[in-house]
């Protein structure tokens, strides 16, 4: 059993490393389409992390929505707004070094604080099982207000996005 656990741990650490490498690729590559593909890699890797943390339904949702819908949207937008031959325009502005230093400093500070904090790990949280039907029940009873509100948000956003992105109607259609 311990060998299996060790292999599982090794696999998860390898996945974390791949996700971080893909994330660095997503912010540094010059060709925007490659960045989008790197982002898809990050999203799939994060879904794998959810599986490692026993959140199976969430992993499925991540792949369906993030990799399925949001990535499609991003790639659509890239296709519609890029001339794909123009891959060698500089993608990063002059503040790259300052940004990298600032980000590194932030990681060191926050990482130090997070390492030292006495996280109150609870045994029942670690061993509890939480299935999709429990999730559904929670959403419908305790969390019903946020659930309804997100529906309204999505509706309002849909209407607004259509208005903002729409080509103007031809002259004769104005009222």
């Amino acid at each position: 059993m311990t060998e299996l656990t060790f292999i599982a741990q090794l696999g998860i650490y390898a996945m974390m490393f791949v996700v971080l490498a893909a994330a660095v690729a997503a912010v540094t590559l010059r060709n925007l389409f490659h960045c989008a593909l790197a982002l898809a890699g990050v999203l799939i890797g994060v879904a794998g992390m959810y599986l490692a943390m026993h959140a199976e339904f969430l992993a499925m949702v991540q792949i369906l929505i993030y990799v399925g819908a949001v990535m499609t949207l991003i790639i659509f937008a890239i296709m519609l707004t890029q001339r794909l031959g123009a891959g060698d325009v500089a993608q990063n502005n002059k503040q790259s070094l300052f940004g990298a230093v600032a980000a590194a400093g932030f990681v060191v500070t926050l990482g130090g604080i997070l390492w030292k904090t006495p996280w109150p790990v609870k045994e029942e949280a670690v061993t509890s099982s939480f299935s999709a039907s429990d999730l559904g029940e929670s959403l419908m009873t305790t969390y019903v207000l946020p659930f309804e509100i997100i529906a309204i948000v999505l509706f309002a956003v849909l209407i607004g996005a259509i208005v903002v992105a729409r080509k103007d109607a031809p002259k004769g259609a104005e009222q």
Binding site: A23, A26, V27, I74, A90, Q91, N92, Q95, A103, A104
Partner: peptide, 18 residues
């Protein structure tokens, strides 16, 4: 941190969204 770095240095709007 990688994400914050990306938003600060990217010039392209879609790059910042990523």
């Amino acid at each position: 941190a990688i994400g914050v770095y990306g938003t600060l240095v990217r010039r392209n709007l879609i790059g910042i969204l990523i």
